[in-house]
Design a protein around this nucleic acid. Sequence first.
RNA 1: UGGCGCGUAGCUCAGUGGUAGAGCACUACGUUGACAUCGUAGGGGUCGGCGGUUCGAAACCGCCCGCGCCAACCA
Length: 887
Amino acid sequence: MTAELPKRYDPAELEQALYNAWEEQGYFAADPESDRPAYTIVLPPPNVTGSLHVGHALTAAVQDTLIRFKRMTGHEALWLPGTDHAGIATQMVVERDLARRGEPGREELGRDAFLEKVWEWKATNGSRIQEQHRVLGASLDWSRERFTLDEGFSTAVTEAFVRLYEEGLMYRAERLINWSPGLKTSLSDLEVDHRDSPGHLWHIAYPVSGSDERLVVATTRPETMLGDTAVAVHPDDPRYAHLVGKTVELPLTDRQIPIVGDGILVDLEFGTGAVKVTPAHDFNDFETGKRHDLPIINILDEGAHISLAGPYFGLPVAEARKRVVADLEAQGLVVKIEEHAHSVGHCQRSGAVVEPRLSLQWFVSTKPLAERAMQATRSGETQIVPKRFESTWYHWMENIQDWCVSRQLWWGHRIPAWHAGGQVFVARSLEVAQAQAQAAGVDPSELVQDEDVLDTWFSSGLWPMGTLGWPEETPSLKKFYPTQVLETGHDILFFWVARMMMMGIHFTDKAPFHTIFLHGMVRDELGQKMSKTKENVIDPVDITNEYGADALRLGLLLMAAPGRDLKMSVKRIEGYRNFLTKVWNATRFAQTYLGDCQESDWDAPAGATEQWIRSRLADTQHKVKEAFDAYRLDEAGHAIYHFIWHELCDWYIELSKRPLRDGSADESAAARAALADALSGALRLLHPFCPFVTDALWPALPAFMRESDSLCLAQLTFDAQRNLDSEAQIALAIEAVGLLRGLRGQMGINPREPLSVRLQVSDPERLGQLDSAARLLVDLASAADVVTELNTAEQPRGWAIATGEGLTLLANLAGKVDIAAETDRLTGEIAKNDKELNKCGGKLGNAKFVERAPEAVVAEERRRLAEFERRRDELRAALDRLAELEL
RNA sequence: UGGCGCGUAGCUCAGUGGUAGAGCACUACGUUGACAUCGUAGGGGUCGGCGGUUCGAAACCGCCCGCGCCAACCA
């Protein structure tokens, strides 16, 4: 027993110190030599530039709760932390930082000096989010913390690249890719956000060569006409059949371009049925160009300015568009301008409009990888929770395109390819590349390493295996891979989860996790996405300062149904802080009695209430176990919340007060033992959700009940049995208390005023169960004396009546009854009862119901009917007596 | 355009075939023994609409309405 708890629950007071102690004691270090089954989760590595937002907080809360639960149930639990170098994001942050401080920019510094700046930036700013995870109580094994650019992990990245290359799954090709003119780098399809935006459909007349005819094309991007190399019409279109094979004069240029028939590109219904073809600046046109062997004319530079010599040279796209349209109008070639909403790709990071651009990039052949990822989910090697995400999973995997992995950035894993003499040498090191060059007859001294770096998601795709030691067959990799659960927001299912699945299976022949567990997006109180510009960002750090990390965790966990978005409610967090105050105070109450607690107390015979609270705990434990197995942490948390507040605090603690204070030696001993058991069970169950407050309260339990110094390492078990007899008995007692309290409330009788009570049941077998009820009525509802009897007894006059399930309660209100008010009350009760009775009678009056419904359902309905009839009769009789009283 | 999700008390949401629930908010009452960050009691719902399946539907099916998300190559 430690010192008395402070009167007030103050999370700030205890959280920081507890975390430091946990970390110092090494509670969270996972041992690869352990005999216990492994349970591994890798924390989705936050960006090194990141600071904790409420989405991270949810991620951390969910994963920590899973990990702590497993740690307490006999597993070697490993939760592995780390950070992601986040190529584009970090490079942007550092560039902005340099600009703000007036230092030389990236270009001026050059590659090596700039990278040095980034590393410096990381050294000073890169550990904030780790500290914030500590604040949340995350039981991460910090001794294993990794960074995607650290040496070991980089080895894994290189290894993966080289192997893919050797297997023919990594190749270099000139293709049309998504290009961010803002960042001047390629992007993967996923990094492009398509936004619907209002635009126009310009109808432009192209004069047919050697004729007066004009072919009108419709386009949303008139400026790209400068790069047109054909006009396509549908081969079956009678309007244009005679034109196929002819040419048009491309306005504003001196070029003539062919009219081709193309049934794939052209939709007869849309626009004019004639499409200008710009292979260099549109994915569909590019494919069309290949089909018809059209030249490709690139009209844009890497910053999306017109690169074509002539009057438009150097203009940004938007400006060029205006000028081109104006010039076409001047020539009378603009036939029509329609409003037209369409979807425009934007760079996820810079916001710039993405331009398709022809360039030489590295690609991963994803189809074979995706095939195996799908096999894993089909076979059940990996399950997706919630299941409904499977359909989007398969849809995406089935339609996957090759993945452009090279980026024209500096911060990242440089591509392990060296160029010389027009040849490429892909190798694990420069030395090996030199040897390859030598063998190929190329002078090794001329080798120049590829300038590009890899997509950040390429490296994070290796995260579970790479952090555990791959490609080395380390003890950790053997013990902790594959991992059990990959938990993250559903927004990065494809960015990250899909890539880990593809790479993990490809390189290890094992799916990297057994369960993909997806949570939703955290929104603001109005359900809007949080964003800095909207100024609706709720900072989890503010919330932990105000209410404590435990309340934040509990709130997030209970608000989050799997896969569903959740609205952040500070009000609810406050409610959970209040709950934790309740837990705190309940423990303070217990502490005053548990000081005298001894192991021999467990020898005292337990009464019905003691058996009841243990049974309710057992039931709660089973519910929690079941909910965890189904990844319903919200349900598990609600069950615990309900048990602690509405069973332990509302009832058992109230019930235990008399025996604890005034009971016989046996009674008080039994009450202490049950209180200790209930509290111990409650704290253990709650610990995965709220580790701080529970561990702070842990010492309030008798030392012999604590198998470890900290709850972090304590055991959670689920083998306790329920005791249904005691549950039935106490349920009856609770109902009786409710009836008496209800009577007092409805009749305006002071809760403390002693009343004589008669408690009646219709079933003789239940008469024996009324002892607890009698005691509870005295202890909790100020009954002066209680008579228990069968309700066949003559009913006294001047007593108020209340009916419950198989139960009738009479309270002596002689002289205190307002007859008119009581008449109203009884009439109301009768009406309410009649409503149910009629519903019930209606069902039983339906021959088909009696005939076809399961026997048990019919029997239950019959029992209810009898019960409602009994109540009706008793209430009516009471009303009659009242009328007599009035006379 | 397609796919998915949602629509249940004033608010936020649980509830997958058998008596409509929780938290918050609201109303009334209650502070000398764990707790006012509290307690006791209470009011409040044609479960979006229509149709179907069923003895029985908030739940299952179909259609419709409204909202949201994701994927999209109609220039």
